[in-house]
């Protein structure tokens, strides 16, 4: 241990103490968490910069531009439009202009949705996608984890077989097939649920179920193997031997430990949900980020593409940080590296 650290601790000099804590990045829970968040936030900046740069380069070399219409405009008009959005400048200058605005938090303007800035569009679309994603995640957890646990504690029985069959079907069905099936049955045949748009709670049922199908199956498979592994442990037998009921052993001892690997897949799970939201927002005509991204790519709406990509990238970084923090609480033996 460095002596200034010991001095600071012994002299109860709180400021100097926490200073050393931050530098060495260990000790108390609160400090570790704080340090972790700071470190991740700092590490996110270069990652987002790389993402922005790569996307910038990619959208510019994609053939076709934002003002290619079926009916060609007169060249003078095109020239004027391009001048307005600085698209006639050299690429490096465009990049400099874009980055300069990005630092100030300005994601640029949309070329297709006239008079709307990208910030404006994303402020409208993000809450919709977040709501959809949160409902999908919640549903996936509510269905997937009990299904996997049920399968594991009845291993080899018919219940296990049924649960795993459902889970395997779930990861094998493309999202659009689930969506088409649900729309066909509940919307067109039984006519009990609306099949498009995002207005009332009823509108959210089918999209949320469609979105949850694949992650629920993924979670069920994962929970099953995790619980099976924990059931082998000596301390599960100990808990049973000291007279704890089977149900309490499962809930208090097995599940708590089995859920650690499940929590860590929240990162990949978010990626699955983002992918799913593209399809779900497309088939249910929901005005979320996925839908805007799809139309932006088709329209070559450069700034909107980069802006959406940055939000998705940021979302993944945030979830990964949350996973690391949750990891520390669930399993204090884990040392998370910043």
């Amino acid at each position: 241990m460095p002596s200034p650290w010991r001095d600071a601790k012994q002299n109860k000099n709180a400021t100097a103490y926490s200073y050393w804590l931050i530098i060495y990045g260990l000790q108390t829970d609160e400090t570790t968490m704080f340090v972790l968040v700071i470190k991740r936030a700092l590490a996110a900046i270069p990652v987002l910069w790389i993402v922005a740069t790569l996307t910038f380069i990619m959208v510019r070399i994609v053939p076709g531009g934002p003002f290619d219409l079926d009916k060609a405009l007169p060249p003078e008009v095109v020239k004027n439009i391009q001048a307005k959005y600085h698209l006639d400048r050299p690429l490096l200058e465009q990049y400099g202009l874009y980055m300069g605005r990005l630092i100030q938090g300005d994601l640029g303007v949309s070329y297709k949705y006239a008079n709307r800035t990208v910030n404006d569009i994303l402020t409208d679309a993000f809450p919709v996608s977040l709501q959809l994603g949160a409902m999908g995640l919640l549903l996936a957890v509510i269905v997937g984890i009990p299904l996997g646990t049920l399968a594991a504690i009845n291993r080899g029985s018919w219940a296990d077989g049924v649960c795993m069959l459902i889970a395997t079907l779930g990861i094998s069905v493309p999202g659009f097939v689930v969506g088409a099936l649900l729309i066909f049955v509940f919307g067109l045949w039984l006519k009990i649920l609306p099949v498009a748009l995002w207005e009332s709670a009823q509108h959210m049922i089918l999209p949320a179920v469609t979105l949850a199908a694949s992650p629920a199956a993924y979670l069920a498979r994962l929970t099953r193997s995790s619980v099976l592994e924990i059931l082998q442990k000596d301390w599960v037998r100990t808990a049973r031997c000291k007279g704890l009921s089977w149900e309490r052993t499962i809930i208090q001892h097995v599940l708590r430990n089995a859920l650690v690997p499940v929590v860590t897949v929240l990162g990949p799970l978010t990626a699955i949900l983002i992918t799913g939201s593209f399809v779900v927002e497309y088939i249910y005509a929901i005005p979320g980020m996925g839908r805007f991204f799809i139309t932006a790519v088709s329209n070559r709406d450069y700034d909107l593409i980069i802006g959406t990509t940055l939000v998705f990238g940021g979302l993944l970084i945030v979830t990964n940080t949350i996973v690391d923090i949750a990891y520390m609480f669930l399993d204090p033996r884990m040392k998370v590296e910043g």
């Binding site: 990619m58 994609v62 990626a271 992918t275 991204f293 799809i294 790519v297 990238g313 993944l316």
Partner: peptide, 18 residues
């Protein structure tokens, strides 16, 4: 790790269109 952090579908769409 960095490549993993990029959303798959975004990369596929952009490269695919490119």
């Amino acid at each position: 790790d960095i490549a993993y952090a990029l959303p798959e579908l975004l990369v596929m769409i952009l490269v695919g269109v490119l």
